[in-house]
Amino acid sequence: MPAITLAGKQFDVDENGFLQDPAQWSDEVALGLAQTEGIEKLTDEHWKVVRYLREYYMKFHVAPSIRMLCKQTGLPLKQIYQLFPSGPAKGACKLAGMPKPTGCV
């Protein structure tokens, strides 16, 4: 199983670099994962998306639909793509420490 070192600690990740254990997530881990996605600095908007995804995942154990994400964070989809250049499913969900979404939309 591949592993990465974030904030001085080792974490097991899947082949796409997603945390294997969502419970290991913390703000520091999110900052470390942002580096792997080429995101230099996490703005308030980044955190808004990450925290919403995190909250939703912990509650329902599944990723919200993209429309739900836009509606609940109040951010237009275009901006979400600007915040997470590798896309909301890959970039944003990785930072939120959840598995890669499996849904269609």
């Binding site: 993209i66 793509y81 250049p85 590798s86 896309g87 909301p88 499913a89 890959k90 970039g91 890669k100 979404p101 269609c104 939309v105």
Partner: peptide
């Protein structure tokens, strides 16, 4: 459209 959207959402 679903496949194109899935690609973009995954950074493809």
């Amino acid at each position: 459209l679903v496949l194109a959207n899935a690609a973009r959402m995954n950074g493809i």
